[in-house]
């Protein structure tokens, strides 16, 4: 299979690889996929609690080159966005940016799912914290 230059670039120089403390109240963690399916993405966002802006994003991915590129690109897209803007990111943006072929579209879907899972996790955490403060 031929890969686009952008997929190759993300594969060779993945952006924002790493992990953040998942117990940090400002960090949201999403993990999607399954080893049996051949891809697992872990995506984390660090949100500034006062501005609601994503200040940092990290990923780790087990999967094919397109899955690695999709999640690497997702972390780039996330930085500087508000939580709600992040939720609006669509997999088609990733498909277009990376020129993914039809058989690799599921990689972009997985990346969108990972973004949503990370943001949901962050929102759940803040909601719980606010509930605790209110009590």
């Amino acid at each position: 299979m031929a890969y686009s230059d952008k997929v190759l670039d993300h594969y060779n120089n993945p952006r924002n690889v790493g992990s953040m403390d998942k117990n940090d109240p400002n960090v949201g963690t999403g993990m999607v996929g399954a080893p049996e399916c051949g891809d697992v993405m872990k995506l984390q966002v660090k949100v500034n609690p006062t501005t609601g802006i994503i200040e940092d994003a990290k990923f780790k991915t087990f999967g094919c080159g397109s899955a690695i590129a999709s999640s690497s690109l997702a972390t780039e897209m996330l930085k500087g966005k508000t939580v709600d803007e992040a939720l609006a990111i669509k997999n088609t943006e990733i498909v277009n940016e990376l020129a993914l072929p039809p058989v690799k579209i599921h990689c972009s879907v997985l990346a969108e799912d990972a973004i949503k899972a990370a943001i949901t996790n962050y929102k759940d955490k803040t909601a719980k914290e606010q509930a605790a403060v209110a009590q």
Partner: peptide
């Protein structure tokens, strides 16, 4: 283990 085959072939 923990590495997906296609990504390995790509490398």
């Amino acid at each position: 283990a923990f590495v997906e085959g296609e990504s390995l072939l790509m490398g």
